[in-house]
Design a protein around this nucleic acid. Structure first.
Length: 418
DNA sequence: TGACGTCAAGATCCG
DNA sequence: CGGATCTTGACGTCA
């Protein structure tokens, strides 16, 4: 059982991915970006290992314009050594990596150029995983594509185009129900014909349910039968609707009670759950700690160290309540802990609390900082107290100072990132 | 023709 | 001039 997150690692300075526009995609720029992005991927994997996260989606942008003719680099040769080293790290740590060509990679398109480009994109994604040296249990997820007024026929086009794919792509490809077109029932139909594993996506299923009404858990069970030994553990996508957002938009954080309810209903826990959520690795750790029986008082204390200034910036009383709760080392209750954190997340901005937290963080920086930094902090804080704007500037300044003084305790704080 | 999703790059604005 | 904030990009489908 693993819980993972997609592409971006929040709050890890060395793990930031970079890109460029097509106009700037010169050979030199691309070479530099690939080098930087591979180092960033390496850092993200180190972080995952340190945090006990063993499921991770690699960004499609890891090689900028990886399937576009503008990128003519033989990146798999040029960076072969680095790629192999990263791959070895993934394998040795027992991590499972995935990739996910987006909604614009359409294998069943009416337009043959679009199909050609989809093939190039699949080849690129597959090549990346191949050169990492990952086996076929490390999957590549694709949506079925367009409907073009005739879902049945369009599914047939998908099938025939699938059958023409190279074997290494077929070995990795898995298909997912989407939020508008192909329901899990539709995707299972395609899966039966092609023997392709199906990824059940809970939010897509809510927005685009099948004709047959089966509870979520029933669909998870049915999808399980599409996963064979060689495919590895069944994988599903889990996300929550953002309150007040357009249908299908992902929540800022995974609300833990709802997740645990879903998790408890899963009959066979031998399953990998990929979270799709704005706060990425942060929710991932939350879900791992809340679903594992091995979560210790120390685990929650480490989380508290990362959350505390954020919580303080929202509410001093919630801050005290959590501190009280954590004093009881005999009764570890991760769900209760994270529900309190969520209370703080959902609280509206409170100027007094923000000022208090900023001053608290400043207390660590104040001692060893430059006069100019001191002046800037005081100026920004005064402006915030006076006019109520510039909170982001305060946080950016504090983070900059923390990085300069290399105070990891502060740099790792979620206060700066959520 | 614009919305959809994504989020850093790139452009522009501000003090 | 540095930093904050707004706009663009790159993709394909669908209304």
């Amino acid at each position: 059982m693993a819980i993972g997150y997609a592409c971006i690692t929040i709050g890890v300075q060395d793990a930031k991915q970079a890109r460029c526009t097509i106009g700037n995609a010169t050979e030199d720029n691309l070479r530099r970006l690939i080098k930087d992005n591979l180092n960033a991927l390496d850092a993200a994997i180190d972080y995952n290992i340190a945090m006990g996260i063993s499921l991770f989606r690699i960004s499609s942008d890891i090689v900028p314009f990886g399937s576009h003719p503008v990128n003519k680099l033989l990146w798999w040769e040029e960076f072969g050594e680095k790629l192999a080293q990263i791959g070895k790290k993934v394998i040795d740590s027992g991590m499972r990596a995935t990739m996910h060509p987006g909604q614009y990679t359409v294998l069943n398109s009416k337009n043959s150029e679009v199909v050609d480009n989809a093939l190039l994109d699949l080849k690129y994604h597959c090549k990346f995983m191949d050169v990492l040296g990952l086996d076929e249990k490390n999957k590549m997820i694709l949506h079925v594509g367009g409907v073009y007024g005739d879902k049945k026929n369009s599914a047939e086009v998908f099938k025939s185009n699938y059958l023409r794919l190279p074997d290494n792509i077929k070995g990795r490809l898995i298909i997912e129900n989407d939020d508008k077109n192909y329901t899990v029932e539709d995707v299972l139909g395609i899966s039966r014909a092609l023997e392709v594993p199906v990824v059940f996506d809970n939010l897509h299923n809510k927005l685009n349910p099948s004709l047959e009404t089966i509870p979520e858990q029933g669909w998870v069970d049915i999808c399980r039968s599409t996963w064979k030994q060689k495919d590895g553990v069944q994988k599903i996508h889990y996300s929550q609707q953002k309150a007040g957002g357009t249908a299908g938009s992902h929540s800022d954080t995974i609300y833990i009670e709802e997740f645990i309810k879903f998790y408890n209903n899963i009959r066979d826990k031998n399953i990998d759950i990929m979270l799709e959520v704005k706060d990425k690795n942060i929710s991932c750790i939350k879900c791992i700690n809340s679903s594992s029986s091995k979560t210790s008082a120390k685990d929650l204390e480490e989380e508290w160290a990362r959350y505390k200034y954020f919580v303080l910036s929202r509410s001093a009383s919630i801050y005290s309540e959590i501190r009280e709760q954590l004093k009881d080392k005999e009764n570890i209750d991760a769900v209760r802990f994270y529900k309190k954190i969520e209370q703080a997340i959902d609280k509206a901005e409170d100027k007094g609390a923000e000022v208090n937290a900023a001053q608290h963080v400043w207390g660590y920086i104040n001692k060893n900082c430059k006069e100019a930094e001191k002046r800037r902090f005081n100026k920004l804080l005064a402006s915030y107290i006076d006019k109520g704007d510039g909170l982001k500037s305060i946080k950016n300044h504090l983070l900059k100072c923390a990085i300069e003084q290399d105070i990891s305790y502060l740099i790792n704080s979620y206060y700066f990132y959520i």
